[in-house]
């Protein structure tokens, strides 16, 4: 029987892991839900952001938050450019899978060419820092990533719910023709949303650089779980992605604490399958 401390620690660990899942899922959920583009290159962009954070810190001694200050706007611009290409070639929901998969492979090769396949670790004094809460320890960087995910999720939800652009994007996702008839300029709004999705990949990348060890193949390590988070959370639903991240993170972590750790991935995908069986309209 696991101790209460072990259970509590695994819940904390799961919540924080879930925060990182959510941070990665936010941009993917937005582009899939509102632009109808399944952007697999989102993971490659996040890892590129991580490598750039590492490089700026390692070679130029730039603090990670300053690096993020450079990377996030640059990624916004990159997201806009990517959407120009997608729009130019009329990439659809299905073909986006192929196109962005290719893009992810190209980015992986570029990362490997520049930084080699060897592991990279951004050593910082905060890497092992934790806050003690009674018998539990809350790792500082993971907590910061989790709070950032929560802030971005709520802010994005509010933006989509209460601003004209947000409402227009939701309307265009639901019925583009009708939204167009009401004067919604979907193309222009889509560029903004694509930029925001890529910028979120940059934010996630900065935290990945600080929390994880970097290797080019890591692009694919997050894919399954983050896809599960996006689908469980509901496409285009930022708060849903956050809550789904927590659900997956905690369920995996508690499974690791009370049962065989190798069962952890089964849990997240079982939740996903169960949800798809019960509510197939989610995708």
């Amino acid at each position: 029987m696991p101790s209460l401390t072990l259970l509590g620690q695994s819940v904390v660990s799961g919540l924080l892991a879930g925060g990182l899942y959510a941070l990665l899922a936010l941009g993917l959920s937005l582009s899939w839900g509102l632009l109808r583009l399944v952007n697999l290159s989102h993971f490659a962009l996040a890892l590129l952001g991580a490598y750039l954070t590492y490089q700026l810190g390692h070679a130029f001694h730039l603090a990670p938050w300053l690096a993020a200050g450079l990377i996030v706007p640059a990624f916004f611009a990159l997201g806009v450019v990517l959407h120009v290409v997608f729009a130019r070639f009329r990439v659809t929901e299905f073909t986006s899978l192929l196109v962005t998969f290719g893009l992810a492979v190209i980015l992986e090769s570029l990362i490997q060419w520049f930084w080699t396949a060897d592991y990279r670790r951004y050593e910082t004094p905060w890497a092992s820092a934790s806050i003690r809460v009674g018998p539990l320890f809350v790792p500082t960087l993971e907590l910061l990533a989790c709070l950032t995910a929560a802030t971005l999720a709520v802010a994005t939800w509010a933006w989509l719910r209460f601003t004209y652009v947000g409402k227009a994007l939701r309307a265009a996702a639901e019925d583009p023709a009708m939204a167009g008839a009401f004067g919604v300029n979907h193309r222009a709004h889509a560029f903004v949303l694509s930029g925001i999705s890529a910028a979120y990949a940059g934010v996630a990348g900065a935290f990945i650089a600080l929390i994880s060890t970097l290797a080019p193949a890591q692009i694919w390590a997050w894919l399954g779980t983050v896809f599960a988070v996006v689908i469980i959370g509901g496409l285009g639903n930022p708060v849903g992605a956050l809550l789904a991240g927590f659900l997956i993170g905690v369920s995996e972590s508690v499974t690791m604490a009370v049962a065989a750790p190798a069962w952890a991935p089964l849990v997240s995908f079982s939740i996903l399958i169960g949800l798809l069986v019960l509510r197939p309209e989610r995708v």
Partner: peptide, 17 residues
Amino acid sequence: YLEYEFGNRDWGALAAR
């Protein structure tokens, strides 16, 4: 005695055990 999947990401729970 614990076995984890190759490619595991959540080390917090294992460390706690």
